[in-house]
Nucleic acid binder design. Sequence first.
DNA 1: GTCTATATGGGGATAGAC
DNA 2: GTCTATCCCCATATAGAC
Lengths: 188, 188
Amino acid sequence: MSNVAGHGPSGQGATTRAAIAEAASHLFAEHGYAGTSVRAIAAAVGIDPALVVRYFGSKERLFLETVRLPLPIAKAFDGPLESLGERIVEAMLSGNLPERLATMGALMRASDSDAVREKVREIGELTFIHPLRAQLAGPDADLRARLIGAQMNGLLIALGMDDDRLTHVERARLVAVYGRAVQALVDG
Amino acid sequence: MSNVAGHGPSGQGATTRAAIAEAASHLFAEHGYAGTSVRAIAAAVGIDPALVVRYFGSKERLFLETVRLPLPIAKAFDGPLESLGERIVEAMLSGNLPERLATMGALMRASDSDAVREKVREIGELTFIHPLRAQLAGPDADLRARLIGAQMNGLLIALGMDDDRLTHVERARLVAVYGRAVQALVDG
DNA sequence: GTCTATATGGGGATAGAC
DNA sequence: GTCTATCCCCATATAGAC
């Protein structure tokens, strides 16, 4: 933390770029895309707003380069197929859920842009569709994998809507009930 | 446009408000919330941007007053419970689907605002939760109804992402496969 | 009352000086 | 490489003209 600042405004390009990316990542997750101004990012790093644009080309490209949606569901694919539905839901709710919801919200709210929508598709493709399709049998495997992805997005969005009726439900109940719905697509 | 005040079918006077709402509704559905400026709405009607604010208070209130997400699923609740899942999905995909996807996208992208999130919750509550909860049995009825709403949002969002792999699937296949997943929550 | 003109403050992005 | 100065677009609020 102390290696970022300390020797005045005459720093190196590489570390400035990394500092911008670091600050942007946090601010985007916390305040969303529209809620985060280039000026705010620059202020957090202690540089001029124009530098941010100079390093990353535009606010949108900065967002696309720094946004990370950690979905630690890789390990959920190991295990018996008959309980895969529950394991997927369980994985979606574990780890840093608040940050995941915030990032998901930031992505959705910025999905005006074609590039952002492509990014969302890409994340779903890599984390859900490909691994799932490999495990599912039947001619509808690809479709079923995509629909499981839709279920997961729906769950994250519902939780991100701050609906107390849903966010206050015990995790185990959520896993059991929604897991059955996911399992219906796993089984085909 | 030097039409003097008075009354008439030329979009002036008392019909100005309606004309603004009409133009705003179309523009929001087509270009989203952020993508639609008050200036653009005013230009479409042929008036000054300040008039829009004068009539509706703010861009956000104009959006909240004019946004309509037609979900003609009321009739889907009539019929045997064992095929309710399919009927719900069928209803979600019938009617003017492109407009529904555009409006859903506009709502999601504007969900930075608490008022918009509340609006989204309200729509889900009235169109899904209440009617569904009345038909579902068991102690988890409320939870299951909300999760079906999450599934529907997930489906709309996935379709709105312009993923050809999903939008090109025949409607009947989508209804059959996703309907089973919904049915899993109907059955409990 | 209805509408127009204008001012304010903030945003992203650019050109060019150190 | 870095920053200063600037441009254009936006939403919003206020004052004043019909």
